[in-house]
Structure formats: C-alpha cells, structure tokens
Computed example of a mutant assay.
Amino acid sequence: MRRRLTAVLWILVILTGCLNGCEKKEETSGIEEISLEEDGEEASSGEEDSPEKTGEETREKGQEPEQETDAIFVYVCGQVAAPGVYELSAGARVYQAIERAGGTLEGASPESLNLAQQAEDGQKIYVPSKEEAEAGTFPQDDSWGAASSSREQGGGKVNLNTAGLEELMTLTGIGQTRAEAIITYREEEGAFQAPEDIMKVDGIKEGIYEKLKDEITV
C-alpha cells in the first residue's frame, strides 16, 4: 500500500509540475503576443507619421526666401497733381512715374518729355506747362526725361538735322512752336549746313542763337 501511495504522490507531483509549466508557457506566449502587437502598432504609427513629417520637411526645404524687388526713387514735380518722391520698380518708364504722381494738370505739356524713357534712380522728372514748353524755360538737363540720343551722338550737343521735336525742345529758348519750325525748315530747305543756319528759321533770331549756340551741332 505504501508503494502505491508513494507512486500516486509522485504522479500527482509530476502532473502538478506539468500543469504549472503549461501555464507559464501560456503566460509567456501571451506576453510575447502583446509585445508584438504593441511593436506593430508603434511601427504602424511610425509609418503613418513619416509621410507627414517628410512632407513638412519637404515644404520647409522647398520654401525659398522672398526675393526683394529692386526699386528706384524718382522726384516728380511741375504740372502734376501730387508732386513728390515716388518708389517705382526698376525698369519703370517716365509715364509711369507721372501716373504715380496723380497724372498731369490741365495746361501741362507732357509731350515735351520722352514718356517712354526708362526712369533712373534719383531722377528728377519735371513736367512743364505749355507756356514753359513754348518759351523753353523749363529745366534743360537730361535728368527730367527728355530724349538724348542726338545729344549722345553729337558729343553732348543736339544735332539740328536729326533731333526730333521733343529733343529740340530741350534747347534753351526753343519751345514747341520753334521746334516745329526747325523741323519744317529742314524738310523744305534741306539739312542745316552750320549751327548758325538756325537763325534762318522763323522766330529764331541772333539773341536766341547766342543762348543756344553751345548746345547745337549739325
């Protein structure tokens, strides 16, 4: 009987040990499965965030600093609605500067200017009145927007045979009427042979010639 009891006890001990071992394995397996699931969720979460982060980084890298537009400043005065200093984009034209100043007043002579000329930084653009244009009493330097191609070709002097209306009007004492008379003369009589031939034009006498003789050439 003792042997049987002993054998039964050993069997119970063995069965108990086996059962405990199985439970430990199941617990271990469950932990591993949870760990794998958690790792999978973290990996999945990482994969979802990655494109967003990548996109944000790409956008940040793709952003370019705003380029500053070159600007110039010109002084518009004379017969304009709002004389003053105005900022323009580089490459702007004289007519755009006048528009920024509110346009011309009644009685102005914008045709005395080369409106298509490119404005320059620091330039003074003076819009004369019709009376000033007629009398030729407005500023005579190239900074106000008058045509200057003939001046450049003539060594700084206006060529009586090639200058246009606007350029002739830059001469001292030559307004629109006299400038038109000069053009009419060379069309009807031919080219000027000498600077003093300008006195052959109606309305231009020796007094005017003495004032502008250093400004003209042929």
Rank of each mutant, 00 (worst) to 15 (best):
E106K: 12
E33A: 15
Q153T: 14
T6F: 10
T104K: 07
R100V: 03
T58K: 09
E41I: 13
G173V: 11
P110F: 00
D142E: 15
D121E: 08
Q176S: 04
R100L: 07
P51V: 07
A181R: 00
K200Q: 05
G78V: 08
G102C: 09
E52H: 15
T54P: 00
A163Y: 05
K205T: 07
E66Y: 02
E48D: 12
Q123D: 11
L165P: 02
E33K: 15
S148P: 01
A147P: 06
T28Q: 12
I98F: 09
E132G: 06
G30R: 14
Q176K: 08
L5Y: 12
E48K: 14
T16Y: 06
Y185N: 00
P83Y: 08
A7E: 13
T170K: 14
L36P: 01
G21Y: 11
P128Y: 12
G190H: 02
Y86V: 03
Q176V: 02
A116C: 05
P110Q: 02
T58I: 05
G145H: 03
S112E: 11
F192C: 03
E187V: 00
T172Q: 11
G173R: 09
Y185C: 00
K124D: 06
G145Q: 07
T28K: 10
I174C: 13
I98P: 10
K53M: 12
G40F: 14
E131P: 00
E215V: 09
L5S: 12
E60H: 11
M199D: 00
N161E: 08
T58S: 07
E47S: 07
I208Q: 10
P139A: 04
T217Y: 07
E41Q: 13
